[in-house]
Computed example of a mutant assay.
Amino acid sequence: MNYTIEGSTMQTLTVDLLAGDSLYAGPGKMLWMDEQIEMKANLRGGLAKGIRRVLSGESLALTTFNAPDRRGRIGFAPLAPGKIIPLEVSPSKEYICQKDAFMLAEDSVDLDIHIQRKIMTGLFGGEGFIMQRLSGSGMAFVDIMGDVVEFDLEAGQQLKVDTSHVALMESTVTMDIERVKGVRTILLGGEGLFLTKLTGPGKVWVQSLSLANFASMVSNQGQ
């Protein structure tokens, strides 16, 4: 798949499809497309899988785009300011991302849910019990709010992140929580009661702006 990412704070993604190629995308992500591109909404994977996607922040139906006869181009854009991250998914390289992060993927990539098995992590880790999982083989794209900082953790190396700022990670990274130490720090530090603790090996993407903070900013400006 050939693609181009343009822009800085509000990026766009242009994808070239060869004849016979197809991809699927989340709702509202398509910006424009050539006339030869066909678009169709469907319950990808059936109703049960559609319901699973809803739990991870996606729509019940996804939209499939294909170029049946000849090459065509499609433009996509995220719904909020941020970065578009390209991912090469393979059986040895799967990804876990926050709710609503999925943008689009080749037909050979599977989008499903990832369930946090640790109750405390699900309650206080900032990402909830259900996240999104990308597996299979092919290219996928996610959109992340704000700017992005990447970390490549070695085996056993840990990174502590403010809750709700973990945007994306390789499936080899484990997620847990850690309580902030010190009553004064908890009450006056402004970081809350818990931090998210990530342990390598694997790559992690941290976002500078969380959905909760963005919603709070918009709400405050409207008052």
Results as ranks from 00 to 15, higher is better:
residue 2 N to Y: 04
residue 3 Y to W: 03
residue 4 T to Y: 01
residue 7 G to Q: 06
residue 8 S to M: 06
residue 9 T to Q: 12
residue 15 V to G: 12
residue 17 L to I: 01
residue 17 L to T: 06
residue 21 D to N: 11
residue 22 S to V: 02
residue 22 S to D: 11
residue 22 S to N: 13
residue 23 L to D: 10
residue 24 Y to N: 12
residue 24 Y to F: 15
residue 25 A to I: 01
residue 25 A to C: 15
residue 28 G to E: 09
residue 29 K to G: 00
residue 31 L to M: 15
residue 33 M to T: 09
residue 33 M to E: 11
residue 35 E to H: 10
residue 36 Q to L: 08
residue 38 E to G: 11
residue 38 E to N: 13
residue 38 E to Y: 05
residue 39 M to D: 05
residue 40 K to F: 04
residue 40 K to Y: 08
residue 40 K to S: 11
residue 48 A to H: 00
residue 50 G to T: 05
residue 52 R to S: 14
residue 55 L to S: 15
residue 56 S to Y: 00
residue 57 G to P: 12
residue 58 E to D: 13
residue 59 S to L: 03
residue 61 A to P: 02
residue 63 T to G: 07
residue 65 F to R: 05
residue 65 F to M: 13
residue 65 F to G: 10
residue 70 R to K: 15
residue 71 R to A: 14
residue 71 R to D: 10
residue 72 G to N: 08
residue 74 I to Q: 11
residue 76 F to W: 02
residue 76 F to V: 01
residue 76 F to C: 04
residue 76 F to K: 07
residue 77 A to E: 11
residue 78 P to A: 06
residue 79 L to K: 11
residue 80 A to W: 10
residue 81 P to E: 06
residue 81 P to G: 07
residue 82 G to E: 07
residue 84 I to C: 08
residue 89 V to E: 10
residue 92 S to N: 12
residue 95 Y to K: 04
residue 95 Y to F: 11
residue 97 C to S: 14
residue 97 C to I: 02
residue 97 C to A: 10
residue 98 Q to N: 14
residue 100 D to K: 15
residue 100 D to N: 13
residue 105 A to P: 11
residue 105 A to T: 05
residue 106 E to I: 00
residue 107 D to H: 10
residue 108 S to R: 09
residue 108 S to H: 05
residue 110 D to I: 05
residue 116 Q to V: 02
residue 116 Q to E: 15
residue 116 Q to A: 06
residue 117 R to T: 10
residue 117 R to S: 14
residue 118 K to T: 08
residue 119 I to H: 01
residue 119 I to M: 12
residue 120 M to P: 05
residue 122 G to C: 01
residue 122 G to E: 00
residue 123 L to H: 09
residue 126 G to Q: 10
residue 126 G to Y: 00
residue 127 E to I: 00
residue 129 F to M: 06
residue 130 I to Q: 08
residue 130 I to V: 15
residue 131 M to R: 11
residue 134 L to W: 02
residue 140 A to E: 10
residue 141 F to S: 08
residue 143 D to E: 07
residue 144 I to E: 13
residue 145 M to G: 07
residue 146 G to T: 04
residue 146 G to V: 06
residue 148 V to T: 14
residue 149 V to D: 11
residue 150 E to N: 14
residue 151 F to Y: 15
residue 152 D to P: 06
residue 152 D to C: 12
residue 153 L to T: 09
residue 154 E to V: 01
residue 155 A to I: 04
residue 157 Q to C: 00
residue 157 Q to S: 06
residue 159 L to Y: 07
residue 161 V to F: 04
residue 162 D to C: 03
residue 164 S to I: 01
residue 165 H to T: 01
residue 165 H to V: 02
residue 166 V to A: 05
residue 168 L to V: 05
residue 170 E to W: 00
residue 172 T to D: 13
residue 179 R to M: 06
residue 181 K to V: 04
residue 183 V to H: 00
residue 184 R to Y: 04
residue 186 I to P: 12
residue 187 L to T: 04
residue 191 E to N: 13
residue 195 L to C: 04
residue 197 K to Y: 03
residue 199 T to C: 05
residue 200 G to M: 00
residue 201 P to V: 07
residue 203 K to V: 08
residue 208 S to E: 06
residue 209 L to Y: 03
residue 211 L to G: 14
residue 212 A to N: 12
residue 212 A to C: 13
residue 213 N to Y: 02
residue 214 F to D: 07
residue 220 N to E: 14
